[in-house]
């Protein structure tokens, strides 16, 4: 097991280095630079000397290799540097938003899991009955409905029916749980529904597959109580691929909720990402890409470990 963990861990290093190099180069290829955007946004007349001065201040006048080495050296020391747009530490900017994004991802995952696992199992057990059809319609509708669109519908409904919309600023859960919940429950529901649709279908097919296994037949033949057969023998084994789907989706939610965050005006990582890219804030974008990369790699790493724990065949392979 120790060797398994070490191998997986070592694979992470070249992956991250590749991601870093790729994002660094891609950003420099895109036309338009941060200094022009900063000063030309509202048609202001800024002389070239001023633009050059600002470029030099941001280190953009240095050769590319030097900029990359400086950035990497900072990364090695866990120093993300300063945002080129705001001049504030990137670590602070990310930390500020990570709390919201993490909470939203957790809430959406909980909602999705609470919906998906029972519904998917029920649909599999009641295959081809009206229950199964209903669950399938519910999950297909979820897949077909973008979460941001559902979010817009929610906001419009709240506005029209109650003349109310969720709060626009984030309050940490320990400061005011009610304010926190009244802001985040809506996007969590919007995202969680779509997320649950995927997981429901995965649960259904996994349970169906497992229900045809010999060990389930054996359990039934022994006269085991059916709910116990489903819960202990079928569902437990079917959860392996479902865990993978939920885990990867969780990683995506950290930085991928761009439009939903925009609709609900959430100050999360997704919005920061979009702003950083549109402002050509190189340092911020690079840090965010690495963060998302690390999250995906870490989630994959944890999933690999989980697989190994849940399925002994994996660790002995």
């Amino acid at each position: 097991m120790r060797r398994f963990i070490l191998t997986r861990f070592l694979v992470m290093i070249p992956t991250l280095l590749g991601v870093a190099l790729l994002v660094f180069l891609l950003l420099r290829v895109v036309p338009g630079d941060i200094v022009q955007l900063k000063y030309a946004g509202e048609g202001a007349f800024v002389p070239k000397e001023t633009l050059d001065l600002e470029r030099a201040r941001l280190g953009l006048d240095k050769p590319l290799w030097r900029q990359f080495v400086d950035w990497m050296w900072g990364m090695v020391r866990f120093d993300f540097g300063l945002s080129m747009w705001t001049g504030r530490p990137i670590r602070t900017e990310i930390a500020l938003r990570l709390q919201l994004s993490l909470q939203l991802a957790i809430m959406a995952t909980v909602i999705a899991s609470l919906l998906a696992i029972p519904l998917g199992t029920l649909a599999a057990v009641k295959q081809d009955t009206w229950v199964d059809h209903l669950v399938r319609i519910f999950s297909i509708a979820g897949l077909a409905t973008p979460s941001f669109w559902l979010g817009i519908l929610m906001i419009l409904s709240l506005l029209i029916l109650f003349g109310w919309i969720p709060p626009m600023t984030f309050t940490p859960v320990w400061v005011d749980p009610w304010a926190n919940l009244s802001q985040l429950i809506w996007p969590a529901l919007a995202v969680g529904y779509r997320y649950s649709a995927m997981a429901t279908r995965m649960t259904r097919s996994a349970v169906l597959e497992v229900l045809r296994e010999d060990y389930v037949r054996t359990a039934r033949a022994k006269g085991l109580w059916e709910p116990l057969v489903i819960a202990r023998h079928a569902l437990r084994n079917a959860l392996l691929p479902v865990t993978a789907v939920i885990g990867l989706e969780f990683a995506f939610l950290i930085g991928g909720l761009v439009v939903t965050e925009q609709v609900f005006n959430l100050n999360g990582i997704g919005m920061l990402f979009v702003e950083a890219i549109s402002r050509r804030d190189y340092t911020m974008t690079q840090a965010l890409v690495l963060l998302v990369g690390v999250t995906f790699i870490a989630v994959n790493f944890v999933l690999d470990l989980l697989y190994a724990i849940l399925d002994p065949r994996v660790r002995h392979r």
């Binding site: 338009g32 630079d33 955007l37 549109s278």
Partner: peptide, 9 residues
């Protein structure tokens, strides 16, 4: 064009 390339051009 997006603002960046628009301004650059």
């Amino acid at each position: 064009q997006e603002t960046g390339p628009y301004t650059a051009d």
